[in-house]
Nucleic acid binder design. Structure first.
Lengths: 156, 156
DNA sequence: TCTAATGTCTCTAGTAGCTATAGGTTCAAG
DNA sequence: CTTGAACCTATAGCTACTAGAGACATTAGA
């Protein structure tokens, strides 16, 4: 039996995150010690490692929830799991495509900066005038699938 | 003078987003009509387009705040703007590197799926057993710079 | 055995960048 | 003059956690 701290160490997951996973139903509620502290068996570690690995691969928690349900019932056909993984792969591919375009524009911007004053700065200028940048045709289509990225994401 | 709706249309930004930008101080508070509705002049449109373009390039709002301050004072040296753009470029590059690694792993996973039952599914198996995947050495170093991505992000 | 340090408990609020909703007011067209 | 759209404020929600407060449990050392 592991304490929550040991479990977290073993899986490389922070303690509050484990409690969070329990709260949203990804982990089964743990048994408790006499003093009301959580105690975990080996299968909880396996489940947590599964979640952690899936998170490392970028799967959203909802997808992980589905994958765990599949894992719990090994007689179901594999197609659902395959579909989830493929969707994730496509999301990653879309994201890479987007980011590559961004990189291209950013590189141009930075390269043209003459390091003078802001008044003649190419960076500021390009940002202010959309026409100055070589932007591929900008479709506002809504093919959003798994795009809750923020910091590096153009709005869908 | 533009209403908030017209401004949004002109800039390709939703109305609540404009109010949000005002709230967090990215846009100056707009003048009001007799009936207390916001009215915008041309310079507000320019500012909003600037923000929108920077967002499209993935700049976080804090960085945009700094860029706007620089734009407001054209006599400052350009170095600060250049630094912000370069930081963004590096963040994008890091992200692409990460995602490319993820893509590789996901592709392998999907390719190995034999479309049988979950019990023998390679996808589920690989997720459950970290050793089965060809993961490059996993350093827990903290080089987080702009990583508030969620859906597709491995935790830093 | 006592004590101090660490670990754990619950609960709440905060992060980014919006989006959605509710309940009310104003504006412009017919 | 009426209707419907656009607008107002304020609040809550989204992802996936993280941080903090204040109280209780456990454990290692003296």
């Amino acid at each position: 039996m592991l304490s929550i701290g040991k479990l977290g160490q073993a899986a490389g997951v922070k303690v509050p995150t484990i409690r969070y996973y329990e709260q949203i139903g990804l982990l089964h509620p743990a048994g408790r010690s006499e003093g009301n502290q959580r105690l975990y068996a080996r299968d909880a570690l396996a489940r947590l490692l599964f979640i952690r690995h899936a998170r490392d691969l970028g799967f959203p928690l909802d997808a992980i929830r589905d994958l765990l349900a599949l894992q719990d019932d090994p007689h179901q056909p594999c197609a659902a799991a395959d579909a989830i993984a493929q969707a994730q792969l496509q999301a990653v591919n879309r994201r890479i495509t987007q980011l590559t375009a961004l990189r291209c524009e950013l590189e141009k911007m930075v390269a043209q900066c003459a390091h003078g004053s802001v008044g003649e700065c190419r960076v500021i200028e390009v940002l202010g005038n959309h026409d100055l940048c070589v932007h591929p045709d900008h479709d506002d289509g809504d093919d959003a699938v798994t795009d809750h990225d923020h910091a590096l994401a153009p709005r869908s």
